[in-house]
Nucleic acid binder design. Structure first.
Lengths: 154, 154
DNA sequence: TATAGAATTGACGTAAACGTAAAAGGTGCG
DNA sequence: CGCACCTTTTACGTTTACGTCAATTCTATA
């Protein structure tokens, strides 16, 4: 029960048209296209982040799903939890101005930005401490190489 | 069955000497002193990172345990896993030059430093993307405030 | 002695985002 | 027809560093 007309073989069997329209893609192609695993796509769906159509039991992803996935991946990249991403996407209303959605996104983004900056500060701190420790260790090692002596560590 | 002579009350009952020597401290004092929880100290012990003496079943921490805990906390701060910290500490030999230990520490530190730098790069990237998105959202919001119009998001 | 404040061990719970089988159904090709 | 390949659902496993009871014991003090 195909919803789309069969296209010419595109290097793998069991395929969906690779024509201009490219209306639907199945999970395998979708995964490859966006560098995620099948498990990830199913997981996102399970969490309500994606809602692909079905041809029987087979998932069919459309342009819309791709747009959503892109947003999810962007959100993930900037450090949002999937829960946050979902909250923001759930507010999308194709018939409105989405002012609420945008405000929420902005609010969450400001908080996330603050978190990222704090994290960066922590990392810089860690880098400082680590570099410091390393130079001390190097010092100790060179002393050992030169003139053996007692110390205090570990 | 006290191993240490009773000292004068130090604001809390059931205490160990607060004298000059301060040989042993129990878990509560130890935790307060280093800003960790009791659970944490027991957990570290369970993982073989600490080895306090015992007075019956009561843990007694010495100067040595404090030194070790400081190292653990430093390690944690710079992003080492407890497993790594343990590996390094396990190599400590009070009778030797600890060259091996120091080399391992240096090796692990170099790798950790690389990880930290990569993380910082990722965070900087995320900050960039997020700032970018935020300005776009602000733009959209201001457009909506000025002249309502359709869009594409969520 | 009653009570409050430490301490003990044991063991399940948590968070996040999937990984990894397992068992089974569909399908186009040679 | 059978194999190879894609897909499905279900469900437990993973990682790290503890949190959070629970039940019990010990000790000092009023």
């Amino acid at each position: 029960m195909k919803l789309v007309s069969p296209g010419e073989a595109s290097a793998n069997t069991n395929d969906v048209p690779a024509e201009a329209g490219e209306e639907f893609v199945r999970i395998g192609e979708m995964a490859k296209k966006y560098g995620v695993t099948l498990r990830t796509l199913r997981f996102y769906e399970d969490k309500g982040l994606l809602n692909p159509h079905r041809d029987g039991s087979t998932r069919l992803y459309t342009r819309r799903d791709k747009a959503r996935l892109k947003l999810i991946l962007l959100g993930r990249k900037v450090g949002f939890s999937l829960r946050d991403v979902k909250q923001m996407m759930d507010l999308y209303d194709p018939t409105g101005t989405n002012t609420k959605q945008l405000r929420l996104a902005l609010d969450k983004s400001e908080k996330q930005l603050a978190r990222l900056q704090k994290q960066r500060a922590l990392i810089d701190d860690a880098i400082g401490e680590l570099s410091n420790s390393m130079s001390i260790v190097r010092q100790m090692l060179s002393e050992r190489t030169a003139a053996p002596q007692a110390s205090a560590a570990g």
